[in-house]
Nucleic acid binder design. Structure first.
Lengths: 336, 336
DNA sequence: TTGTAAGCGTTATCAG
DNA sequence: CTGATAACGCTTACAA
């Protein structure tokens, strides 16, 4: 039989409320040291563990966050999670994590499930979300913050990276190396980070008096597989290029594989820049020049904002835009 | 104000129990179709979401698993988690995930925390655990299964990979290529997987009439950093070797970096075999010959066993040993 | 400083 | 087929 607070009370010869008072150790409780000690001792003796579920029901708060991501084996998201978990554990919160596999229906179900589980708030790093769920969360003032995702909607809190700036960094680097025929493997235009990177690409070209050539752009899933296929699509177009700006590192890695297969050498035959600076970026050969996103920080800050919203410490919308950084490695070289 | 079951009942003009019956939809409930429909409609209309916390308190089960791992950004563990999460979601369970950062004290705290949160069972992929906690779990018949970790203790369920066989696969491969001076970068001997791999190494040498030379063995943390340092330690010993068997892929990757720094070429100067087959293994240059561990499956099976134990479908100890597989890539070549 | 009692939102037992 | 009612384990006024 499981030990409850009542058992402790009985054994220590006090009332349940007294036991409750010592375990919640609010500072203003006035309890005789002797009683407290007796209670502490019997808690120890009985190996009593407070039932957090019961407590949650009573105080209407679970000290739990929900986090929804497409895929935890993608190191982008595991870094995000780790950052979030760090802050959460500092504040005494746990995180329930769930993968959507980029499946909208699954995401919806998960969000609902999390809410039914009474998680105090949601960290959303998923690419899509239905208007219905969003509306339901807002109507019910259900705390939630978007991570790495920006809705064109004034009322949502989010933490993102400056995709436009990041792209500029990457493009200016290529231009400085003398490249003018720069291809772009973009992500799906429905994904806002991908879209912004694509916009940034066009903007950078223009700013450097290079003209935008649609033939130099291939849309791809933001995965290795996608990058691999995209490269073949690109070469099939038989258009000249001396550099490629990939919308993320995964695409870049897949592209490297394809290029190697085709007998093309990076950076000799063309330069390559990615985005994200995943751990894999310095393992590839050549190592990948890329734009570093402060992932750990992004998760950490998102959780911080979320918990503040939960606690009502901030009742305004938080919009945080982090600064990316260019990391130059071996995959880019100046044109000769 | 939050909508509760009572609100639904009132609005639909029925008693709370009836509402409860329709939402738990047990098959034997006898409810008039018309009433059910009315209730379903008002649930919809009020956007009512059952409070799982209250339900859990009442039925004494949360349909939640706890999973404790050293570090989610290590792709070994993220793959494990993903497998576990797949099974869990199939069975209607969620998973609370927590990182220990390989810190024993933190692990203990987390386990306790999970138990207080009434998770129905625990998936333990952490390297160490105190006898106290273990004892407490066993005394209370708290369901838990070890993942990738085997205790010398007859009463624990676990899912592991056959480390001995895996090592044999790796070593026989090297021997078949003509190597006889094979170094080993081992993990900490306190980690059981590492220990078994080391034992296997010695056994394989013996079986092939090669003698065991302690100078060819360096102990290391099972990280990139560790592998990096270990390589320098190894060369400092100035002992000849033509191949290295690393206790895991992370060590192997770190070692590659160090070797490159030293101007040594793999596999020309020496062959290298890892263990785990992490995603990074085919990204490195040269790609890494390694022993594939069915990680996703391991997580999946562990969760399956755990849930069965929770449901009381299996009341015996489960010990599962998965088969590893050799994956030959570019980092090994025959000696000339 | 401590105890009593109500209630958090469900489900389950027992009537009707 | 449906409704009262107690109970799950805890916290918190309020009372003593």
């Amino acid at each position: 039989m499981k030990i409850t607070l009542k058992d402790v009370a009985k054994m220590a010869g006090v009332s349940p409320s007294t036991v409750s008072r010592v375990i919640t150790k609010s500072k203003d409780l006035n309890i005789k040291d002797e009683t407290r000690q007796r209670i502490l001792d019997t808690i120890e003796k009985l190996d009593y563990k407070p039932n957090v579920i019961a407590r949650s029901l009573r105080i209407k708060s679970t000290n739990t966050l929900g986090m929804i991501i497409p895929d935890i084996t993608n190191s982008f998201f595991s870094a995000l999670f780790k950052g979030a978990e760090k802050l959460a554990s500092e504040k005494g919160f746990s995180i329930i994590l769930a993968n959507t596999d980029d499946n909208l229906a699954k995401a919806e179900k998960l969000i609902n499930n999390m809410r039914q589980r009474q998680v105090d708030g949601l960290l959303l790093a998923t690419t899509h979300i239905s208007d219905d769920t969003l509306h339901s969360m807002n109507v019910n003032k259900y705390p939630h913050v978007f991570v790495n995702r920006h809705l064109n909607n004034e009322i949502e809190s989010y933490v993102i990276v400056d995709n436009f700036l990041g792209t500029t960094l990457a493009m200016e680097h290529l231009v400085a190396l003398g490249h003018s025929k720069i291809a772009h493997i973009s992500g799906p235009s429905s994904v806002d980070t991908a879209f912004k990177r694509f916009e940034g690409y066009k903007f950078s070209l223009e700013r450097n008096d290079l003209c935008y050539n649609p033939d130099l752009v291939v849309e791809s899933e933001m995965t290795e597989e996608g990058g691999y296929k995209a490269f073949y699509e690109l070469v099939k177009k038989r258009v000249d290029f001396t550099a490629v700006y990939a919308a993320n590192d995964l695409i870049a890695v897949g592209l490297m594989t394809a290029a190697k297969e085709k007998g093309l050498k990076i950076p000799e035959d063309f330069s390559l820049v990615g985005f994200d600076d995943l751990p894999v970026a310095d393992k590839t050969s050549p190592s990948l020049t890329t734009v570093k996103v402060p992932l750990h920080e992004m998760g950490y800050i998102a959780a911080d904002i979320l918990i503040k919203e939960i606690k009502g410490e901030k009742n305004y919308i938080n919009k945080i835009i982090l600064r990316p950084e260019l990391v130059v490695r071996e995959s880019t070289k100046s044109i000769v």
